[in-house]
Amino acid sequence: MAKSKLFWPIMVLVFILVFNLFFDPSFFTVEIRNGRFTGSLIDILNRGAPLMLISIGMTLVIATKGIDLGVGSVIAMSGAVGAMTVTGSPEGSLTPLFLAIVLALGVSVLTGVWNGVLVSRIGVQPIVATLILMVAGRGVAQLITNGQITTVYYEPYKFIGGGYLLMLPLSIFIVAFVFLIALYLTRKTSIGLFIESVGANPSASRLSGINSKNIILMVYMFSGLCAGIGGLILSSNVASADGNNAGLWYELDAILAVVIGGTSLMGGRFFLTGTIIGALIIQSLTTTIYSIGVPAETNLVVKAVVVLIVCLLQSPEFRNKVFGAFTRKGIKDTKDKGVTLS
């Protein structure tokens, strides 16, 4: 199951990357420069880090039949808190850095609690509950930065998003760490099973002794945390906080990544690896568009087309209508040969 779900996303990603090769023969080369790996592939991983993080959180939320529209605002809030904490701090001490991380992530988790309580305790539809934060959160972020774009001069803060470890960008390690934790929690503990069962049938899950309210609360907190980390990386990248524009449209990109990765918006089964590939597809698209010299704004059109293609490929109705003529024969043929199609 999981393998077949990953087939199309991987094909799309490979296609985009190979497509780049025609414009830039050195696209796949990774060089060591100044003691660091550089190259387009590293660049995609590095720039895609925040999106991958947020999409991981979003995957779990969507698996519970929820959605978190507030992540963009949380990015802005987390970045604002982080940047405001370290502004004017002396270079020598690392204390402001840790304080900034703790405060920013604390606020992010709190927003998750807010969403989670609205959804699980008060019973508000997720799309509605998180809409509140999507609207108001940006206001709060501007409130924190006082409506200004705050620039950070404190060097250690820039390390979160711009630092290097073992010759690779730190952000890649952060993503890998969060991804592995998520994988571990969902595959080696029963959280994954509980999330899927709550997403597919909440009342049956409750009668089976699962505290679905806490599961739901937890995934929103996790999503908030992921968005918070993403917000810190983004804010650290540009060494500033912008309440108005930081993380704009990230919620939509993240949902896109999840859907491309094969997780259904109807909840239930989820695919974390698929999500990562989905996020990489979105990031490589952006990079591609920049590198082949098409106006950056075209990105939106391409994204729209990709969303539609992926959704259509996943739609059983579309497959029936378009490939319908082959299906009946196809099933028989593949059965005989023992081959599985997609």
Binding site: I127, L256, A304, V305, V307, L308, E317
Partner: peptide, 20 residues
Amino acid sequence: FFNLQPFIVTLAGMFLARGL
């Protein structure tokens, strides 16, 4: 026709219209 979710389709529409 393809039973896609309004949310995701109009999201694509949003990107498309702004991109255009």
